[in-house]
């Protein structure tokens, strides 16, 4: 966190004017100190201290603030200066709040049945600070908590009232990159030029796909390529509903497409609803750009 250009921060000067002024006058706890709230607290925090149960139980001292929380109800006793201070901060875009410091002193234990009242004062407002969460002001209040006329605890509380830092929008997920190696580099070069290249054995002239270093039929390592004409049919297919992978939006159809040349390849079947893809459906090759680096061959369903 760091000081901003606090020198010409007019807002800070105005906020500072509220130091020493009340933030709560004659606030009252929503409920008397009570065993159920104590029990819930202990249950959540895993606190098994026997002092907090049974006859003569006291409340965990650290619950002090819990007894004066407004919850979802309007604050009781909130003083005008504090409302004004918060409104000034809200207007300046400091709409979010997070607590940073809490200092409590416990003068005597609270027991079920105690009815607490409280008064608070605005102790200080910091110069403008920039934190990971955003830029804003630390506001410190001090609260005196009483039962009847007796001071039972004090509670100093510091909050950061801040304008949330803008988080950069998550970049869209990208499809996985193909693994390009010496054996298949020619295929991907072809795709870049919008050509679907099949390998042809130099010896037996068999066509093959995917690309391999040698002929699986005759073993010959030499080959050349032919361009697929782009016509084919759905030999088989699946529709993926789940799980969703980044950059893919289920449901979508994946076809095993038999090309007119006789070899088969796997790719998306596009241009028809996923549930209209059928075995035997004619498809036509097209090249689809997915991002600034990735172009893939896909097959568009040809409907009658």
């Amino acid at each position: 966190m760091g000081d901003d250009d606090g020198l010409d921060d007019d807002l800070h000067a105005r906020l500072k004017g509220y130091e020493g002024r009340p933030s709560t006058v004659a606030g009252a706890g929503r409920d008397p100190v009570n065993a159920p709230m104590i029990r819930h607290w202990c249950e959540v925090l895993g606190d098994t201290n026997p002092a907090y149960t049974g006859p003569g139980a006291t409340a965990p001292p650290t619950m002090l603030q819990a007894w004066i929380m407004a919850g979802l109800s309007p604050h009781t006793g909130r003083a005008r200066p504090y409302e004004e201070l918060l409104a000034l901060l809200d207007e300046a875009g400091c709409t979010s709040i997070v607590a940073t410091d809490c200092e409590q002193e416990y003068l005597r234990p609270l027991r079920p049945g105690d009815e607490v009242t409280y008064d608070s004062v605005i102790e200080s407002v910091s110069p403008r600070k920039t934190t990971k969460l955003g830029t804003g002001y630390f506001v410190t209040t001090r609260t005196d908590v009483r039962v009847g006329p007796d001071l039972v605890g004090t509670h100093r509380f510091r909050v950061l009232k801040y304008a949330p830092a803008r988080r950069p929008a998550k970049p869209p997920e990208r499809r996985p990159r193909p693994v390009v190696n010496r054996d298949n580099a020619g295929f991907w070069e072809g795709v870049r030029d919008h050509r679907l290249l099949l390998q042809r054995c130099a010896d037996c002239a068999g066509l093959r796909f995917p690309w391999l270093p040698g002929c699986a039929d005759c073993g010959c390592p030499d080959w050349d390529t032919v361009d697929a004409c782009g016509e084919g049919t759905v030999f088989s297919y699946v529709v993926l509903h789940h799980p969703p992978f980044p950059a893919f939006e289920p449901p979508y159809a994946i076809g095993l497409v038999e090309l007119a040349e006789g070899v088969r390849m796997v790719s998306n079947v596009v241009g028809v609803p996923y549930d209209k893809v059928r075995i035997g459906m004619p498809v036509r090759l097209e090249f689809r750009r997915y991002d600034d680096e990735l172009v893939l061959p896909v097959f568009k369903g040809v409907t009658a």
Partner: peptide
Amino acid sequence: NILTTNGLVGRYLTDHFGPTAVLRKVAVRL
């Protein structure tokens, strides 16, 4: 939230010092 942290710190101390221990002051910074 800070109240939970505060409560856990209190519990840590009384767990160690036992049920007769009395917390006088807890000051935490998050």
